[in-house]
Design a binder for these strands. Sequence first.
DNA 1: GACCTTTTCTTGAAAGTTGAACTAGATAGA
DNA 2: TCTATCTAGTTCAACTTTCAAGAAAAGGTC
Lengths: 167, 167
Amino acid sequence: MTTASTSAPRWLSDEEQRVWRAYLHATTLLEDHFDRQLQRDAGMPHTYYGLLVQLSQAPRRRMRMTELARNAKITRSRLSHAIARLEKNGWVRREDCPSDKRGQNAVLTDDGLDMLRRSAPGHVEAVRQAMFDRLTDEQVRSLGEIMRTLATGLEPEGADADLPWLR
Amino acid sequence: MTTASTSAPRWLSDEEQRVWRAYLHATTLLEDHFDRQLQRDAGMPHTYYGLLVQLSQAPRRRMRMTELARNAKITRSRLSHAIARLEKNGWVRREDCPSDKRGQNAVLTDDGLDMLRRSAPGHVEAVRQAMFDRLTDEQVRSLGEIMRTLATGLEPEGADADLPWLR
DNA sequence: GACCTTTTCTTGAAAGTTGAACTAGATAGA
DNA sequence: TCTATCTAGTTCAACTTTCAAGAAAAGGTC
């Protein structure tokens, strides 16, 4: 009897349960915290803000939709809706891709860049206050390594991976 | 010139940026991963599943709404909607609180407990595979400490805190 | 070229979340 | 008591996300 479906579950140890719970609590609170900070100061949820940041750092302030979805770790559908909303705000515009007629580029507008410049200081301060100011250098280093490991684990090389931006 | 609004922003260092990015990537992918696993195997999002788990561990399998919201780190509004949905599924029912006529208890039903027993092994396995199997014991220990620190930082003692379950 | 499959992106409806407004009951002070 | 305030929980509308379906172009094979 060695099949996964019938073998005895390897329950979490007490410490693992505590760590898992702490992980869920911290990530939920952090997400809520930044969503509120950015909704208040920039008029959009954290995810949307992240898209503008990505675009601002891309060559010529533009990026293909799927590429942007991959960077943000979200589905293309979600991205389509998000870009539509940001377009309404005048912070992004769409542009046909010259080399592939199916493709679209999302382009950060000047207004979008302005909005980013205005809100960036406050957001960085919020990130510092909630995360980096509370951790030792060693903890920051360790957190980075852990998070890279976990992210990599969920993005396997093979074509069998169920990745949001390919759904 | 020392006021927060006008002092030079303390931008993130390169390493801090990498850590922050890795954090966002990993947490986004993990959330997506568990939401899908549970939607597939238990017919509900991760947050809802967490509520059933909380109830299953509470005395007499019941809990006051605000208390449950506090444990889950979510707003009471969100919880109201969630419980309404779980009630439709027959996994939870509401009950008037005897000692406070404004209060409601959310009670895990027998059906709810069954559903939890059926899906728990698969979920634990998913958590192991995505998180604990990939980290060393030392990393698990470190992650726990980091997450407890961050969660605590966002739940200050004072009455000035903007906590989801008090909104 | 004709045909089939894959890739890119969008759409519309259903499900979930947020924020503000609201009801009802508890609490505290004059 | 009377009244003002606070707390518990729900509801509605607006917004966001998911899922399934679909249009259009690209790529591969014969």
